[in-house]
Design a protein around this nucleic acid. Sequence first.
DNA 1: TAGTTTTTGCAACTGGGTTGCAACACCTAT
DNA 2: ATAGGTGTTGCAACCCAGTTGCAAAAACTA
Lengths: 137, 137
Amino acid sequence: MTTTTDNILKRNQLSVTDSRKKILELFTANDGALAHSDIEKKTGEKFDRVTIYRTLQTFVEKGIIHTIPTVDNSVLYALCKMDCTEGHHHDNHVHFVCDNCNVTYCLDDVVTPKVNLPDGFKPKVMDVVVSGICKNC
Amino acid sequence: MTTTTDNILKRNQLSVTDSRKKILELFTANDGALAHSDIEKKTGEKFDRVTIYRTLQTFVEKGIIHTIPTVDNSVLYALCKMDCTEGHHHDNHVHFVCDNCNVTYCLDDVVTPKVNLPDGFKPKVMDVVVSGICKNC
DNA sequence: TAGTTTTTGCAACTGGGTTGCAACACCTAT
DNA sequence: ATAGGTGTTGCAACCCAGTTGCAAAAACTA
Ligand SMILES: [Mn+2]
Ligand SMILES: [Mn+2]
Ligand SMILES: [Zn+2]
Ligand SMILES: [Zn+2]
């Protein structure tokens, strides 16, 4: 029997291992973003810290997940929903952090607005993080 | 003789010390944002790392400088130009990071644009970081 | 100038993240 | 199904940013 996560791994030329399956499952089961520490807790001592770091790194490189900039200088990861490929991410969407439940959401459908920059500044990439109260709070 | 930096320190009920004067001077002399490491380099072994950390922390608390979220998860600091006070910052402006010279600017005059969020999401604060090529490059 | 308060420097510690390497698991071809 | 080669894991050791407690030193106050 071949599961969804197995397929995602194979599609990306990654060998199917316990850690990769479990970590990928966490992302597909969860609609918010996850920090390294979340994963460490949810896998419960099953895998070495280093393995988790390396797995996340691999997933980012393959375009399976992307990192999210945070205000408090921690790193968050979330599933790429667009057609991201190795080395090229299409994840320029708005992120929302809930002040109450502290969950971070990818708002893939929200278009990032245009801003008028002063003369001489040429924009390329725009990161928008909105914080407030989420739909579940 | 009383300098500008001395006045800023006194106005904020801070005792005037060498480290505070020197670090504050760096901010007033520089129009881009500074990282802890920048300050460490520019002061040249003159002050302990811990002193620099504590000074920056104090300045942030007093509303003299503010922190800037970065993509690569480092912390940047820049002078508050608005009327920020102890505990309350008015620094919701757009930040610009130059891909070429790597300087980060506070674009105090650029209004942060409105975005349309999905139903149920109530926005409070919005952080916008634009990257591209700056006016000096 | 002396006494009080605040700040500094040092040393020790924490926590996130990385690296090298040997043991192990996964994939492929027979 | 099995053996061999390749990729992945776990461990130990390390690095670096940032924090903490405390005694010495500097700044303020009277
Ligand atoms: Mn996202
Ligand atoms: Mn700013
Ligand atoms: Zn919430
Ligand atoms: Zn530039």
